[in-house]
Write a protein that binds this DNA or RNA. Structure first.
Length: 803
DNA sequence: GATTAGGCTTTG
């Protein structure tokens, strides 16, 4: 009993469930044949998913008949629908409620951005609330195995009001709506109301590592605040440790979705509710706004980035929120409690309730350290011997609940230990003037945030520590100190040693070539054309600014162009304003309006064949508008072609600007292969046009978006420059065209590049990649040159998937 | 399937 989505509203009438009889809601009654019928309507109300008895879920919605004659009884046009079980959850995720937007200009009218649903397999029951809610005398229950829902989401469907709207009103409307509604609204922490399910942002002012509860879950407790200065405790329950928010330090920023406000001990608290999610960010101004997600899929966009940046700015001005820096070993004083960032060198089991961790942070403790005697064979990772390093390694006794986490650690991993205790161990025979040796304890329990956690290797606050450790490792190499442990640990890529805990990242070949792996030196000696399998690391890549990887490719003349930046495009629009004399085409209906406050007349042309169509599917030609205005309008309307006039005829803009705007997407024509003169578009009404149809109708050669990156690969035998181009979409699991308009996908590509080649990383830290390489010759100035391309390869790993 | 916990005034 699934919830299906369809693209076009017309599919609900024609393609979907053709064997069922549509009943108009006013005609529906208890005697109607529910088995062979369907109903259709817009979703005018959607309630939350609530859990009811027997562990079932329930969602109530109201749908309203659309296809009504004026005379219909309005009370019977809207009906309560109850969705049960997983269908309730699916429905809640797939469907949005009708949004009414009104524009006043002499008269008010409304536009309905709504989801339309087609329901079948329902049970018709008498509505017990007919008298109170004044809706349909029946309600529908969607619960049985035959229940199914088809949804057409976010269709801008012309209400009667809209179809009566003139072009001028449409233009005005488009200008009045500045973009679409935000996906989520966030409640300031001082405005929480009990029992409400909310989304919030906050700066972490206290946190505890997750600990097992007496129930089934782990529990994280934290306290957050925001610009309202309200301080709110949060309790997060989840069975899986990895689902808990990844908080590393006070001052980190957290975004919580679907948490429930509740009063406890007279203060407001937040509690995870059904479908909750948490995303955290580093709190430092200027560090990349990279989300650490607690769920595998989440939405993250420009608005989130701005919110995080604003919160960072605010937090920086609050002295109490700036995170206590971790204390290096060199600054540790006896008896203090402190947080330590370090690298694990070795570990040993003392007993079931105690483990010994040997760590270093590149600094030397000012106090003599206690050495804990452990049998050599109980160490994992080598116990140390070098006198030099003995002064720099600390032995940490980890107790009770922390043993569970400590057991999973692998030498080489970067760690943070919270509320570590420096305990002076006084030897009774020691003279009082001799300083006592320090030992370090991570006591049992989670009070004061006690605990330990693995730091991701790309964590910004790890970078100073890594530089320090790297310099020690380098010095050890220079001095040729025969101390393999240190070097081995340092040069073991955390990606492999810490794989189980931190992250996994690798590539796989998707081709069926049964090829033996060869070295890069071997590839270079081979005669093209040839396909090879190699194992290599990324030494460097370019362009480093990833938006520069996105190119335009003409399938006709094979040329590759940069994607013009907004400055260039805005310039083309400005120049076109000069050619704003009215033009008329016999095939178009033209209307004009004053641009608000700009002393300019904006003209809109619609192909006459399309005038009677659904406004959303029309191909619009707009003249005399700026790029900014175009961006606002294109967010609301599919298929807009910017035009200018020349000798009273309509003409396309220079091809440095997109010839077509479709929502967020922009499409370009090839300067060489497109007709510069305007071609009358051959249109037929009713269809939804895509960029290919529009290009064809206008005589434009459509440029394809493509990703192009040049890698410098290395494997110890040689280095080699290889392009990632034709199979780049497969490699990154994205579509180039979608990526051009979608911040999430751009972030995804960036995230993958950061895994392939972590910023600031040394060679040993970069992952080894299994790659399929194609070598081929190209003519370059009359000479043959060998080129290499990464083909048939895709990345795998737990990088986030945006949706 | 609900429940869990609700910092904290540390200690091997």
């Amino acid at each position: 009993m699934p919830v299906h989505t369809v693209k076009n509203a017309s599919d609900l009438d024609t393609r979907v469930l053709p064997n069922l009889q549509r009943i108009l809601l006013p005609n529906l009654n208890l005697m109607s044949d529910a088995v062979h019928s369907s109903v259709k309507g817009k979703v005018v109300q959607k309630g939350p998913v609530v859990s009811c008895r027997q562990g079932d879920y329930l969602l109530k919605a109201v749908i309203q008949e659309e296809d009504l004659q004026q005379s219909s009884v309005s009370q019977q046009a809207s009906i309560n629908v109850f969705f049960f079980g997983t269908m309730a959850k699916d429905f809640s995720l797939s469907v949005s409620q009708e949004m009414l937007l009104s524009v006043t200009r002499q008269k008010a009218f409304k536009f309905n951005f709504k989801d339309i649903v087609l329901l079948a397999g329902f049970i018709i029951s008498k509505s017990p609330t007919e008298q109170t809610n004044r809706l349909h005398p029946c309600h529908l229950e969607m619960s049985g195995p035959d229940a199914c829902v088809y949804v057409c989401t976010s269709a801008v469907s012309p209400s009667r009001e809209l179809s009566a709207v003139s072009s001028e009103e449409l233009l005005l409307f488009l200008f009045t709506c500045k973009g679409s509604q935000p996906r989520y609204t966030y409640v300031p922490l001082n405005e929480l109301k009990p029992r409400r399910i909310v989304n919030v942002y906050g700066v972490v002012i206290f946190f505890k590592q997750p600990f097992p509860t007496k129930g089934t879950d782990y529990c994280s407790t934290l306290k957050i605040t925001d610009q309202s200065n309200a301080k709110v405790g949060c309790t997060i329950f989840s069975e899986r440790l990895e689902d808990h928010p990844k908080i590393f330090t006070i001052g980190d920023i957290i975004r919580l979705h679907r948490v429930k406000a509740q009063v406890f001990n007279e203060s407001m608290t937040l509690l995870t509710s059904l479908g909750w999610s948490a995303v955290t960010f580093d709190g430092a101004i200027g560090s990349p706004v990279e989300p650490h997600a607690s769920s595998r899929t989440f939405h993250f966009g420009e608005a989130d980035k701005r919110t995080v940046e604003t919160l960072r700015q605010w937090a920086a001005s609050q002295p109490l929120l700036t995170s206590e820096p971790t204390v290096p070993l060199s600054s540790v004083q006896p008896r203090m409690y402190f947080d330590l960032s370090c690298q694990l060198l070795a570990k040993a089991c003392i007993d079931s309730r105690c483990m010994l961790l040997k760590v270093w942070d590149g600094t030397k403790c000012g106090y003599p350290l206690l050495d804990v005697a452990v049998a050599t064979d109980t160490w994992e990772g080598q116990s140390t011997t070098s006198k030099d390093r003995e002064d720099m390694t600390a032995n940490i006794l980890v107790y009770d609940n922390h043993v569970e986490v400590a057991k999973t650690l692998k030498p080489g991993t970067f760690l943070r230990l919270y509320n570590l205790h420096a305990v002076p161990q006084r030897d009774s025979e020691q003279p009082p003037d001799v300083p006592s040796r320090l030992s370090f304890h991570l006591h049992g329990g989670t009070s004061f945030g006690r605990g330990l956690r693995v730091l991701p290797s790309h964590s910004p606050d790890l970078q100073p520590l890594k530089r320090l450790l790297e310099s020690h490792a380098d010095r050890a190499v220079e001095k040729e100190v025969n101390d393999d442990t240190l070097l081995e640990v340092w040069y073991t890529p955390p990606e492999s040693v810490g794989a189980a805990i931190t992250e996994e990242f690798y590539t796989v070949q998707t081709c069926r070539h049964a090829l033996q792996q060869v070295s890069l030196a071997h590839v270079k000696r081979s005669t093209p054309p040839v396909v090879c399998h190699v194992r290599a690391q990324v030494r460097s890549y370019k362009p480093r600014k990833l938006y520069q990887c996105l190119k335009l490719f003409c399938p006709q003349c094979k040329s590759i162009e940069e994607v013009p930046d907004d400055g260039t495009i805005a310039q083309v629009f400005q120049e076109a304003l000069r050619n704003s004399l009215p033009c008329s085409e016999h095939w178009a209906v033209t209307s004009s309006m004053d641009a608000p406050g700009a002393g300019r007349v904006i003209t809109m042309h619609v192909a006459s064949d399309m005038v009677l169509d659904n406004t959303h599917s029309q191909l619009l030609f707009l003249q005399s508008l700026t790029l900014d205005e175009m961006c606002v309008i294109s967010g609301m309307h599919k298929n807009i072609v910017p035009v200018q006039s020349e000798n009273r005829r309509m003409k396309l803009l220079d091809f440095s600007a997109p010839f077509l705007f479709c929502g967020d997407k922009r499409y370009y024509g090839c300067k060489r292969c497109s007709r510069s003169t305007f071609v009358e578009p051959v249109v037929s009404g009713g269809e939804m046009w895509d960029e290919h149809d529009v290009a064809k109708a206008l005589g434009v050669q459509l440029m394809q978006y493509t990703l192009l990156i040049q890698f410098e690969l290395q494997d110890g035998t040689s280095t080699l420059d290889a392009l990632l181009w034709e199979d780049a979409e497969q490699f990154f699991h994205v579509s180039s065209a979608e990526t051009s308009a979608n911040q999430d996908l751009q972030d995804k590509v960036q995230l993958i590049m950061d895994r392939l080649h972590p910023p600031g990383s040394i060679t040993a830290k970069r992952p080894w990649l299994e790659l399929c390489l194609s070598a081929y010759s190209v003519k370059d100035n009359g000479r043959n040159r060998v080129c290499y391309q990464i083909t048939n390869t895709e990345t795998r790993g737990n990088f986030f998937t945006a949706h």
